[in-house]
Nucleic acid binder design. Sequence first.
DNA 1: GTCTATAGGGAGATAGAC
DNA 2: GTCTATCTCCCTATAGAC
Lengths: 216, 216
Amino acid sequence: MNAVAAENQGEQSSRERILDAAEGLFARRGYAGVGLRELADLVGLGKSSLFHHFESKPQLYAAVCTRILARIAARVDESLARGGAPMERLERVVDDLLDLLAAQPSDARILLRSLFEDDELAGETREEREGRELTAHIMASISALLREGMEVGQFRSVHVPGLLLSLIGQTVFPFASGEFGQEILGKDPFDPAEVKRRKRETRDLLRHGLLAPAGR
Amino acid sequence: MNAVAAENQGEQSSRERILDAAEGLFARRGYAGVGLRELADLVGLGKSSLFHHFESKPQLYAAVCTRILARIAARVDESLARGGAPMERLERVVDDLLDLLAAQPSDARILLRSLFEDDELAGETREEREGRELTAHIMASISALLREGMEVGQFRSVHVPGLLLSLIGQTVFPFASGEFGQEILGKDPFDPAEVKRRKRETRDLLRHGLLAPAGR
DNA sequence: GTCTATAGGGAGATAGAC
DNA sequence: GTCTATCTCCCTATAGAC
């Protein structure tokens, strides 16, 4: 059975298993806090074997980030393609993103952490360029949706970049907040009931803050 | 001239200079990404001298975080003490926090990063306990204000813990977002005009989302 | 309070056998 | 594709002189 057939059977390639393990470790301890020795042990490989699949630690980190961004970009494209009025599409894309972040507990932390690591990711590898392109694509898609809603008069006139940053803070941050969020909320931020509540909260926020008065 | 007199003259103790430098480094590269050699060079001391002022790297990190939290707690207490109706106090405390975060460019990143480092800060040093107490105090103060606003009927009935997390995302995250935020906004998030805009945006969000209909 | 010297270990990465 | 062995460098922390 070759590698492709193995994956069709639900098994994973070494590359995928490394990426999965690395994602969890980087989420918990950050780029510099993870040693390749520890990662190799977790996957059940020798440390040197990692270098057969990834050429360096920065490149591995970039691959982890890019895989997450690719998942998100795919979901955003899919959500937006289903059509509807701007507010309908906006609420759907936010709902779907919250579902995605809730299903992949490491994603929110890695995404926020990667924003803070300006230094580490100054490189020019293929993965990093791809990651930047995916980020730009996601942001451009949602910006276009917001501007469209304003043009057709469904949304109030708002500062689009500012709202984008706020939306990220509102949706991504709670899933990255770990024990702190757990303590504040009194329950796990990933608990299905809490995810549902956060969807409602975000939707209410958009309806109160973004809908044009005539649209209510 | 002794140490206290020196500080009155505007000079800093070694301890303060170490904390300032460490804050900048930890903000940029995270706990594990900073070496004490680099920190010592930046301060202009030998590496060993750091251990005269702090007993270990985790304790130094905790001291950095606790100093930030103490600044914030002091400002929150001061803002809330000036009185007024709940919405007036809430808008003032948010305004003041945004000013504080804008004036201390490393604070937002360190605060968010420290939330992600559940592992590193599992300790029981005096600084860590102090940091947890300060965090609890800040959160309790703002929670109490939100509940008071709801009780007197000025605020709609909202889920207080959820709104707390959202507010942190809305206010702290943009200052931590670095080059990403800069690219989205098209300007430095710390630019005075942008800080002013973010204050307005946050105030509008609170007025649209939190004020009770009768209060408009 | 700051220094030099050093202990003791772990990091990322490479070479080359199998 | 995985392994063992090894390179070189840097890490936190300590000892002890000044």
